[in-house]
C-alpha cells in the first residue's frame, strides 16, 4: 500500500523533472530571462490593452496632431492626432495575434510535411522537397506580399500569408531532425515492438524533434512580427483603422525629417519584441540542448 502511494507521488515528481531541468538551466541565463520578461509583458499588454491604453486608439483630433511626447501623450500623437502609445499597445495585440496564428499554421503544415518527408523517404520525400525548393526560391517577404495582395487585408489573410512564407523553413528543420532520428536505434526498437509508422511518428519522432521546434517557434514569433510590420509598411496586411506597428511606421514616412516619434517609437516596439523572442529562443536552445547536460 505504502509503496504504491510512494510510487504515485514519485511519478508526479519524475514526470516534471525533465522540464524542471530545462527551467533551472534557463533561469541561470540572464539574457534569456530578459527575453522572457519582454515576451510575457507583451502578452499581458496585448490581453489587457483596453485597460492599459490611456486613450482610445481611434479617436482623432486634428487639433492635437503631431504633438511631441508630453505628460499627456507619453509618446506624442500621430498625424491624425491619435495617441501613439495607445495605438502601439493595441498594435501589439494585432501583431502578436497574427504572428501566433501564422506560427501555428506553418508549424502544423510544415511540421507534418517535414516529418512525413523525412520518415518515409523515397518518392514522397522527393516530391515534398521539390515543392519546398520552389517555396524557398521565392524570398519570404515577396511570397507574403504576393499572397497578401491576392487575399486582401485582414487578420486571417495576413496570418495565412505569413504562414505560407514560413512553411518551407519548418519543413526542412523537421525533416532534418527526422532523418537523424530515423536511424536511431530506439526507432528500430519501436518497430521491433510492433509500432506502426503513425505511432512512431507521433510517439517517438515528434516528441524528440520538440526541442528545436520550440526554439524555432519562439524565434519565428519575433520574425513574423517583423514580417507583418513589413507588410503593413508597404500598405498590405492588416488594414486601417486597425493599428499595426508597421502601418504606424508607414504613416511616419511623410514626416521622416520632421517628426521623429512616429518613426522611433513603433520601430523600438518592433525591435524590442524581436529582441525579446530572439534572446528567449537562444536561451531555450541552450537550455534544451542535451549536449550541455553534462
Amino acid at each position: 500500500m505504502n509503496a504504491q502511494k510512494n510510487s504515485g507521488s514519485m511519478e508526479k515528481l519524475r514526470k516534471s523533472s525533465q522540464w524542471k531541468d530545462v527551467w533551472i538551466r534557463l533561469r541561470r541565463n540572464k539574457l534569456a530571462m530578459v527575453g522572457m520578461v519582454i515576451a510575457v509583458l507583451l502578452a499581458l499588454m496585448a490581453i489587457f490593452a483596453p485597460v492599459i491604453a490611456p486613450y482610445d486608439y481611434q479617436v482623432q483630433s486634428i487639433a492635437e496632431r503631431l504633438q511631441m511626447p508630453s505628460a499627456q501623450h507619453l509618446m506624442g500623437t500621430d498625424n491624425m492626432g491619435r495617441d501613439i502609445l495607445s495605438r502601439l499597445i493595441y498594435g501589439g495585440r494585432i501583431s502578436l495575434l497574427v504572428s501566433l496564428l501564422a506560427v501555428i499554421v506553418s508549424l502544423v503544415i510544415g511540421g507534418l510535411l517535414g516529418a512525413v518527408s523525412g520518415y518515409m523517404g523515397g518518392k514522397v520525400d522527393a516530391v515534398i522537397m521539390r515543392l519546398m525548393d520552389i517555396l524557398m526560391a521565392i524570398p519570404g517577404i515577396l511570397m507574403a506580399v504576393c499572397i497578401s495582395a491576392a487575399l486582401g487585408g485582414g487578420v486571417w489573410q495576413t496570418a495565412l500569408a505569413i504562414a505560407v512564407a514560413g512553411i518551407a523553413g519548418v519543413c526542412r528543420l523537421v525533416r532534418g531532425q527526422t532523418l537523424t532520428l530515423r536511424n536511431q536505434e530506439y526507432i528500430e526498437a519501436a518497430r521491433a515492438s510492433g509500432s506502426g509508422t503513425l505511432r512512431i511518428l507521433l510517439s517517438n519522432i515528434i516528441p524528440n524533434c520538440l526541442a528545436p521546434i520550440i526554439v524555432n517557434t519562439t524565434m519565428s514569433i519575433g520574425g513574423n512580427i517583423m514580417m507583418i510590420s513589413a507588410l503593413s509598411f508597404v500598405g498590405l496586411g492588416v488594414q486601417p483603422p486597425i493599428p499595426e506597428w508597421g502601418a504606424i511606421l508607414n504613416s511616419g514616412r511623410e514626416y521622416v525629417s520632421t517628426f521623429w516619434p512616429l518613426i522611433t517609437f513603433p520601430g523600438i516596439a518592433i525591435a524590442l519584441t524581436m529582441f525579446g523572442f530572439n534572446v528567449f529562443g537562444d536561451g531555450l536552445r541552450d537550455a534544451l540542448d542535451p549536449k550541455l547536460k553534462q
Binding site: 519524475r14 536505434e185 526498437a189 519501436a190 517517438n204
Partner: peptide, 23 residues
Amino acid sequence: RKFLTNMQMIFQDPFSSLDPRKT
C-alpha cells in the same frame, strides 16, 4: 505484430536504443 511477440531484439548502443524522452 503478432509474430513479434515471439521474437524480439536487444540493440547495440544503450545510448541510442532508448528514447531519451521516455521514462
